[in-house]
Design a protein around this nucleic acid. Structure first.
Length: 564
RNA sequence: UGGGGGAUCGUCUAACGGCAGGACGACGGGUUCUGGCCCCGUUAAUCCAGGUUCGAAUCCUGGUCCCUCAGCCA
């Protein structure tokens, strides 16, 4: 087995495609499509579908179209079209010149509908919506035939054309396929194909007052575009017989094969449009691109990279079984990417002042710091060191437990890229007992971080020079929900009951190394020993930096603490 | 209680009648100027019961559990 075969994804969809290719189907071509409805923002579940469809096209030398499934004008908007295009592009996929809209096919779809009528396979039904529901039957009882089911072809054609012409009120008639009211599959109980809806369409304006339904439009759009494999999620499995029925009933360019896979679920979050909408409209978050949202815009704003998401989508695989992926896998993919690419800097989130009593007042040294140990080409930079510095408050403990290696009275540690430091005195607020400052001594012989006498130190601390540091606001994000599967909330409980009210902690007065003053929105850094942080794209400004914590570093110390 | 799907380590996923493998997690160790990265190791699974077969996660029979469908949404 060569390397490519080792890394090539294997899943049941690719198995099917391989089989089709082996049987010389579709002229050995593979054509897929990603068909979002422009009625919301893309989230990481869509990313799974995008990676699958575009990934298959890439792997088989085929094509993947971006098609907006815009058949319902009351829900769809241009704003969503633009955000979806931006997100797909950002994820790293290119539809080239194959940007399509179902609305581009409205005229052809109408003609196909006339064909269906001519063949006696569709009729205009004048039952009300409520009556249609009533006639449909139940899970165990067959439906009843509409009294309009046997209208003549001529009458149906006339009525359907007049529906288009706007002669009827909304809801007065619908076009229905004439299939089987007794079918055990509801989708085949004379499904609605067209409805009258006087609504302004974001692309066709007021040109139409009748709009095709998903089941009717989707299969025909796939066929018009020459799609070979129409990949969708599991809930459309019941619709497949209808998909096939329509294409069999008409003379169409081709008959794509619909394949269903299980949608993505992720722990500690929700991924349904309705629930995400609730989070936004009920202000549990600050918009669709809130860094806690699983939307692509939210993840991007948080600092999650496209490469990490692509890698994640490859790792989770594709299958038909319902599943919930551990969000820790996304974190893993993120760290894997950011470890390679993110420049290292030092930043102190909760500062404690340290005065180095044996360091000359007024003196400033420029020390060399490596930008990225994983990438020698990233080079190094100078950072200022002086008598007064800040260290992380959690890096000092007056009375340390057994496995705490960091600074404590009398103990020596290393300041990264600087000197060994030993704590000699703890200065406290008389009233509160809070630590105000630490007085320490440094060893001038250890400049750069190594002791000539070979003595070792158990910890290395990050720090910033007090007078040189830039201030910043840093937001610490954690899971939006306290429940692993908030979407499964039962017995009258709302999924929002398990919202994590501490999912965002805002820290002000954080102190960062001076080079960060020039950081611009979207920049991602590793704050050494802490995690990866991204300059917020909306609220950060020069002189008033705002960082979002993308993900923490793996943290062995916190695990040790949890155990005890 | 009709139809359509699905059940493999804690989680995700391979296997296409022939050694149940990988990844994440967890745990242990090595290394280290990031308690990071990296390296090594341990843990741990075929829903149940029968049957076919030299051999079954895979095929057959029967059961159990889960998801899904009664929009003029997609």
């Amino acid at each position: 087995m060569n390397e490519q075969e080792l890394s090539a994804p294997s899943d049941f969809i690719r198995n099917i495609i391989n089989q089709d290719l082996g049987e010389n189907k579709n002229n050995k071509k593979v054509a897929t499509r990603f068909p979002p409805e422009p009625n919301g923002y893309l989230h990481i579940g869509h990313a799974k579908s995008i990676c699958l469809n575009f990934g298959i096209a890439r792997d088989y030398g085929g094509t993947c179209n971006l098609r907006f499934d815009d058949t319902n004008p009351v829900r769809e908007e241009t704003e969503y079209v633009e955000s979806i295009k931006e997100d797909v592009r950002w994820l790293g996929f290119d539809w080239k010149d194959r940007l399509y809209f179902t609305s581009d096919y409205f005229e052809r779809l109408f003609q196909y509908a006339e064909q269906l009528i001519l063949k006696g396979k569709a009729y205009v039904c004048s039952l009300t919506a409520e009556e249609i529901r009533d006639y449909r039957g139940t899970l165990t009882e067959p439906g009843r035939k509409s009294p309009y089911r046997n209208r003549s072809v001529a009458e149906n054609l006339d009525l359907f054309r007049r529906m288009r012409a706007g002669e009827f009120e909304d809801g007065a008639h619908v076009l229905r396929a004439k299939i089987d009211m007794a079918s055990s599959n509801f989708n085949l109980r004379d499904p609605t194909l067209y409805r009258i809806r006087r609504a302004h369409h974001h692309r066709t304006g007021d040109a139409w007052c009748i709009y095709p339904m998903y089941d009717y439009a989707h299969c025909l759009s796939d066929s018009i575009e020459g799609i070979t494999h129409s990949i969708c999620t599991l809930e459309f499995e019941n619709n497949r017989p209808l998909y096939d029925w329509i294409l069999d009933a008409l003379e169409t360019p081709c008959h794509p094969r619909q394949i269903e896979f299980a949608r993505l679920n992720l722990t500690y979050t929700v991924l349904s449009k309705r629930k995400l909408m609730t989070l936004v409209t009920d202000k549990f978050v600050d918009g669709w691109d809130d860094p806690r949202m699983p939307t692509l815009s939210g993840l991007r704003r948080r600092g999650v990279t496209a490469a990490a998401i692509r890698n994640f989508c490859e790792k989770i695989g594709v299958a038909k079984r319902d599943s919930v992926v551990d969000i820790a896998l996304l974190d893993y993919c993120l760290r894997e990417d950011l470890n390679r690419t993110a420049p290292r800097v030092m930043g102190v989130l909760r500062p404690v002042k340290v005065v180095i009593t044996n360091y000359p007042e007024g003196r400033v040294e420029e020390l060399d710091a490596v930008n990225n140990p994983e990438n020698p080409e990233a080079g190094s930079r100078k950072i200022p060191f002086s008598r007064e510095i800040f260290i992380e408050s959690e890096d000092f403990m007056e009375d340390p437990p057994r496995k705490f290696f960091r600074l404590s009275p009398g103990r020596e540690v290393r300041l990264r890229y600087a000197y060994f430091l030993k704590c000699t005195e703890v200065v406290k607020d008389e009233k509160s007992g809070d630590i105000i400052e630490l007085r320490c001594v440094y060893d001038p012989e250890t400049r750069g971080g190594d002791a000539p006498d070979g003595r070792k130190v158990k910890a290395t601390l990050h720090w910033v020079s007090a007078s040189h540091a830039v201030s910043a606001t840093v937001r610490l994000y954690s899971h939006l929900f306290t429940e692993e599967n908030p979407g499964a909330a039962k017995d009258g409980k709302a999924f929002t009951d398990s919202i994590n009210h501490g999912s965002m902690e805002v820290l002000t007065g954080c102190r960062l190394e001076p080079g960060l003053a020039g950081a611009v929105p979207g920049n991602i850094f590793q704050f050494e020993r802490l995690g990866y942080f991204c300059v917020d794209s909306k609220e950060s400004a020069p002189g008033a930096l705002v960082f979002n914590r993308t993900v923490t570093l793996r943290d062995e110390w916190s695990r040790i603490q949890k155990k005890s």
